[in-house]
Amino acid sequence: MKNQLSNRYIILISRFVLGIIFIIASADKIAHPELFALSISGYKLLPVYLVNISALVLPWLEMITGIFLVGGIFVKSSSVIIAFLLTVFIGAISLAMIQKLEIDCGCFGAGKGPQVGWLRIIEDFGMLFLSGHIYYFSNKPELESKI
């Protein structure tokens, strides 16, 4: 099993799948920051003054880590950031579900995304698995290998 997971083509597939998902997910949010800000405020987690700055930076973080995963740049650290983001998303969706908030999840594009629910959490865990896979079996951080 470990051999299969460490197969470089399997890692390549993981990188492409996760990277492309993140690029697609971020594109609509970048195009409509005001709607994504509404999605974020719907979760009622962040103080009002942090909502806009998150709505601006988060999609670009997703976009850039996605591009890096696909392009093979800073792969290990990109996977760490993505895993962190996914953990935050899982937490946010869980809290929204506990509070029974009927909000759009804002996962794949602002405002028009599906509602928060178990399926979103399962998807995020799937992606979390991919990011873990990439982290463990990808090469060392580039900065380290250059030193």
Binding site: L61, F74, K76, V80, I81, P141, E142, L143, I147
Partner: peptide, 10 residues
């Protein structure tokens, strides 16, 4: 190195 990279990306 990993933390540096993360800071760069962020």
């Amino acid at each position: 190195p990993l933390i540096k990279e993360i800071l760069i990306i962020v």
